[in-house]
């Protein structure tokens, strides 16, 4: 049984790796804590003197094991932060040069996708709107201007490990670069009313030639 659905982007695979790193840190902590938990229960009937048991823990020396535990967890935390920061920076804080730009607009309960049209520029007269079907080329940087018309939606591409809320009145630009062709899901991850569970789009990741043909077809209509 696989843990994650297949990953179709470099970033997505790194995020999966990060999950396992955090799980490893947490796993070590769990093993240590579990021992501290179970051992006293197992040995509960052994004889102990009152002096042994009267542990108040009011001096730093007596609390040293607690401090050591906190230090260890602190190191684990720092390790997680060190590993995650570069990924966050590349996903959210940098915007590589786009090969292709689209607009994706959430609306109750569908995704409107605006392609730039034959001139290759968005927000011009020849823009073309499509519903629920997003065609993107493989291995290219795609910029998405994310918007919403009525309520808060959230563009969720599970296989690309991508998510961004779509807010009315704002345009948020994010990028994706996918490395596998195929048909994938677009979910809405923020409750948006009665039709929230039918708000699904399809993302087609195509190799460059097929994609150009599809685009030409869309523009002809």
């Amino acid at each position: 049984m696989n843990i994650f659905p297949e990953s179709i982007s470099q970033i997505g695979s790194e995020m999966d790796k990060l999950f396992w790193i955090i799980t490893a840190v947490v796993g070590i902590a769990t093993v240590i804590t579990l021992f501290l938990f179970i051992y006293p229960i197992v040995t509960r009937k052994r004889n102990k003197t009152k002096e042994e048991m009267y542990m108040v823990g009011n001096s730093h020396n007596k609390r040293k094991w607690v401090y050591i535990g906190m230090m260890l967890l602190f190191l684990g935390d720092m390790y997680i932060l060190l590993k995650e920061h570069p990924i966050w920076e590349s996903v959210e804080q940098t915007l590589p040069e786009p090969d292709f730009k689209i607009v994706i607009i959430g609306k109750q309960w569908m995704w409107n996708i605006i392609y730039p049209g034959p001139d290759g520029k968005l927000y011009t007269d020849d823009d073309v709107m499509a519903y629920n079907e997003l065609h993107v080329p493989v291995n290219k940087v795609v910029h998405m201007d994310i918007k919403a018309l009525d309520v808060v939606h959230s563009v969720f591409l599970p296989q690309a490990r991508f998510k961004q809320d779509a807010l009315p009145g704002r345009t948020i630009t994010r990028w994706i670069k996918l490395n596998k062709t195929g048909e994938y899901d677009i979910s809405c991850a923020e409750i948006c009313g009665t039709g929230h569970s039918i708000m699904r789009g399809t993302m087609y990741v195509e190799d460059f030639n097929t994609w150009e043909k599809t685009m030409a077809d869309i523009y002809k209509k």
């Binding site: 501290l36 042994e52 048991m53 542990m55 607690v66």
Partner: peptide, 27 residues
């Protein structure tokens, strides 16, 4: 994110204190 992850540390101290209470107890 930093602050959220850091908040685990005081709680670790608290849980470890509780485990210290269990340690060698006549449970």
């Amino acid at each position: 994110s930093l602050l959220t992850i850091i908040i685990s540390i005081p709680f670790a101290g608290m849980v470890l204190s509780y485990l210290g209470t269990l340690w060698k107890g006549n449970i």
